[in-house]
Nucleic acid binder design. Structure first.
Length: 590
RNA sequence: GGUCCCGUGGUGAAGUUGGAGUUCACGCCGCCCUGUCAAGGCGGAGGUCGCGGGUUCAAGUCCCGUCGGGACCGCCA
């Protein structure tokens, strides 16, 4: 911030800006009383705090000012006497003397310390007094970092020719996707608006409308259960471009993300690498791989092609992960209880079982199944996993997708560091499958993404003959195992759109009923287009070194969707319900 | 919908095989203190151990339920 703009009618400077250069100046500062240190009848030290930091004020001990009172202090900046410099704070070489104190407001003692110790306070208490929590340096830093990320993104998008356009919050309910928040209509009782899960429909219409490059930092709302990385309402950089291929979109988004990261951390991350969805699943067992640690899935199917071990015989896919004692001593040394728990976990995740093998002295394998494995199988197991003595090998034999996903989950459980720990590993995951399987009841392919996602040009011919082999022009951006966002090239050809709908079991008539207002415009000359959206909260949290997006949101909700400060959600006045034509049912009996 | 963890003065914790609301630190109130900086010294106030049942001579402690918070699975096209 321009220092001159910090000067106001009430103050001349900011507390945290006081430096040796200010010595001799008469300044007026405004802020809150941090700590008070009393030293007799006529000497006390006050730490005066504003958003910029704290500065020590030397005052007469007779003044009655207490914790978190709001003061305006006029005084002279002076060098601290020799031996009293505090190197731990930026203002530690100076102090404010000859202070005249004006009490702008007094305050009750805060429920928790307005400093680093607030980090240990129950989050519910922090949220109940969020306005005090935000006074703390951590939250001030996080919210300002968030603002600088937003600013860098805007600057980057604008310099790349994108036009910012706001889209409605009140829109029709759309049948697919996440659960929506509904808003009852007063003028049409019985009818509802929905709040947008994303501006997806609007931005595609803006492409039909010839905007060419649209972006918006948009609030999105989804009525799904909350998590460390999920809130009901969250911010997305939402963008869409015309006359592009996926490389164009990924380049634009990469530029914006790299600009944001640089603004937040001061250093530019390297170009973002790419990985196909198939490779991600095959090597990491998940479509949002965390590249900060190894423990990759190791292919074992061939090794056990002719095995005598029944559980492995005829399995479509056999893979292993090696928990290395050198990196994960505790996990590798897991005892029987822990291994049984891992086996239970694997079964819960859909595997038929989990084979564990401990590599003991002399590369002797300790495992309930060791006796079923031939000498050659055992030696190949060790050489392919590069296992050392003390390592723990976990194996799953199942369908390819089950083997991958179960081991991927175990890999994350056993090895994944907290999301904010460095280094930052961005990765584009590309070539997602168009369909993720066959619905057992309808016998129809299940969509991997929304149904407007364009199939890979090379695969379009197989849409009907071999739908599961069709790749989508879809891509996700992943950072440290968190999905930052996803995008795709959209279908702009009405004929192709109908073919995709039919594959999903949606007849032309159904499609018109459910998506009519959205499909109609595409008859009037839709350009080829594609776009992306990524979650600002998640990016900011990781860049801020937090592993929870609530730490970078000013007023977040708890995991149950409530706000301890405002008590939202609340009941409403019956008159409001009457006006909306809404009558409440009695609470459902349990 | 499910699995797991947590709930003790304002805050953070300790509380043993069940034995008196016991303890520690910070904060708060008062007094002392002229160079501290998470100042220091002395004194004081402050709690229905989330809530409701149960077991027991006796429950913060064991059991059941419930409420609140958190992590994860489902879910989030």
């Amino acid at each position: 911030m321009n220092k001159q703009t910090n000067s106001t009618a009430l103050r001349s400077h900011l507390c945290g800006d006081m430096r040796v250069e200010n010595i001799g100046q008469k300044v007026t500062l405004c802020g809150w009383v941090g700590r008070r240190r009393e030293h007799g009848e006529h000497l006390a030290f006050l730490d005066l705090r504003d958003f910029s930091g704290i500065v020590q004020c030397v005052v007469d001990n007779s003044v009655d000012v207490r914790s978190e009172w709001v003061l305006r202090i006029t005084g002279t900046v002076q060098a601290r006497p020799a031996g009293t410099v505090n190197d731990n704070i930026p203002t530690g070489k100076v102090e404010l003397a000859d202070c005249t104190i004006e009490v702008l407001n007094n305050a009750e003692p805060p429920p928790f310390p307005i400093d680093q110790r607030g980090d240990d306070v129950d989050e519910n208490v922090r949220l109940k007094y969020r306005y005090l929590d935000i006074r703390r340096e951590r939250m001030q830093k996080n919210l300002r970092l968030r603002a600088s990320v937003n600013s860098a993104i805007r600057k980057s998008m604008e310099s790349q020719g994108f036009t910012e356009i706001e889209t409605p919050l009140l829109m029709p309910s759309t049948p697919e996707g996440a659960r929506e928040f509904l808003v009852p209509s007063r003028n049409e009782p019985g009818s509802f608006y929905a709040l947008p899960q994303s501006p997806q429909l609007w931005k595609q219409l803006l492409m039909v409308a010839g905007i060419d490059r649209y972006y918006q930092i948009a609030k999105c709302l989804r009525d799904e259960d909350l998590r460390a990385d999920r809130q009901y309402e969250f911010m997305q950089l939402d963008a869409e471009m015309s006359f592009v291929n996926k490389d164009d979109v990924m380049a634009m988004i990469s530029t914006a993300v790299i600009a944001a990261a640089k603004a937040a951390t001061g250093s530019e991350p390297p170009p973002i690498e790419r990985m196909t969805w198939h490779d991600a699943m095959n090597h990491y067992g998940i479509d949002k791989p965390d590249l900060r640690f190894e423990m990759k899935l190791i292919e074992m199917t061939e090794v056990f092609a002719k095995t005598e071990f029944k559980a492995f015989a005829s399995a479509e896919s056999i893979k292993a992960i090696c928990v290395r004692a050198a990196e994960y001593p505790q996990q590798a040394a897991s005892g029987r209880n822990k291994l049984d728990a891992l086996t239970d976990k694997a079964k819960k995740l859909g595997a038929k079982g989990l084979v564990w093998i401990k590599v003991t002295e002399g590369f002797v394998l300790d495992s309930p199944v060791a006796k079923f494995l031939s000498e050659s199988e055992q030696s190949q197991l060790i050489s392919l996993t590069k296992a050392e003595v003390g390592d723990l090998i976990l194996m799953v034999a199942d369908t390819w997708s089950t083997t991958c996903s179960v081991l991927g989950q175990l890999r994350n459980d056993l090895g994944r560091p907290p999301v904010h720990e460095g280094p930052y590993r961005y990765v584009w995951v590309v070539d997602f499958p168009m369909f993720v399987g066959i619905n057992p009841t309808t016998k129809m392919p299940q969509p991997g993404h929304h149904p407007f996602c364009h199939p890979h040009h090379e695969d379009v011919d197989r849409l009907e003959s071999d739908p599961l082999s069709v790749r989508a022009l879809a891509y996700d951006l992943v950072l440290n195992g968190w999905e930052l966002g996803s995008g795709s090239i959209r279908i702009h050809e009405p004929d192709l759109q109908r073919r995709v709908f039919r594959q999903l079991g949606i007849s032309d008539e159904d499609a018109d009923n459910r998506f009519g207002f959205f499909l109609q415009p595409f008859k009037y000359g839709a350009p080829p287009h594609g776009g992306f959206a990524f979650g600002i909260d998640r990016l900011v949290a990781i860049l801020a070194g937090e592993d929870n997006i609530r730490e970078v949101i000013a007023f977040p909700k708890t995991q149950s969707g409530s706000d301890p400060m405002t008590n939202a959600p609340t009941t409403v006045n019956p008159n409001q319900l009457n006006e909306l034509g809404i009558r409440l049912l009695p609470p459902a009996a349990k």
